[in-house]
Amino acid sequence: MAQNEPRRTRPVLLRVAAVAVLSAIWQALVLAEFWPPVVLPGPAQVWDQLLAASDSGNGQGGYAGSTVAERLGVSLRRVGLGSAYGVLVGVVLGLVMGLAPLVRAVAEPFVTFLRALPPLAYLSLLVIWFGIDEEPKVYLLVVAAFPPVAVATAAAVTGVNRQYVEAARALGAGRAGVLASVVLPASAPEILTGVRLAVGVAYSSVVAAETVNGADGIGGMVLNAQRYNQTSVVLLGLVVIGLTGLLIDTAILALQRAVSPWRGRA
């Protein structure tokens, strides 16, 4: 997990500039008309699509029954629930794995196995077991989200500097004290790196989760638009997913810095 260090500073300006440059290249490609607009619509068309799909009074309630914001809300709720439970399961499992080598030996292959599966592969199973309502969608995200957290937490716990643990014991800390005041805070940055990965995985799996009776979400919108060759709607969906994903990641990164300002200093 160590290679996933948060960078010291990533100036907002740089990010905005990068987006602007990419959009400009995109627009230039469209203007050059290498491909017909149906294949590659420009940023302007996607923007128009955003406005249209956000207008609940446009006769189709935005796009196919819901506005972009409503769809985003539905999908974010799924991602939020799936990640929250996934993180909970992952942290608990990771702690147990990190503290009990036997549990780790048993659980690790299982977790790694799950991690290797693309979410679409086990969606069918979840649908058979839990039907086509909300549950299997959230379960899918839980299953997708918990392995990276479990792996990161287990690695963090086993990697806690023994000198800190010994110092704590020399100060009279019991097992619970060592766990709460040394192991957890010492592992927090790495656990949060796992959470970052988990939320990313959950978010990128939401489109898969919404392939079955999930037309109300943002992923559902993309799938629907694909059926009717509405390229600009597909692009709109991708941009919305990508941008919100970026925002969420930035927020988690900020949380990580706030929780562990000592990272890299001690």
């Binding site: 800190y164 110092a167 020399a170 100060l171 009279g172 800390a173 010492a186 562990s260 001690a266």
Partner: peptide, 19 residues
């Protein structure tokens, strides 16, 4: 027993950086 009656100072301070 570690932490009972005996205090220890090590070569490195081993302060908890999260506090």
């Amino acid at each position: 027993v570690p932490g009972r009656d005996v205090g220890a100072v090590f070569q490195q301070p081993r302060l908890f950086p999260w506090q």
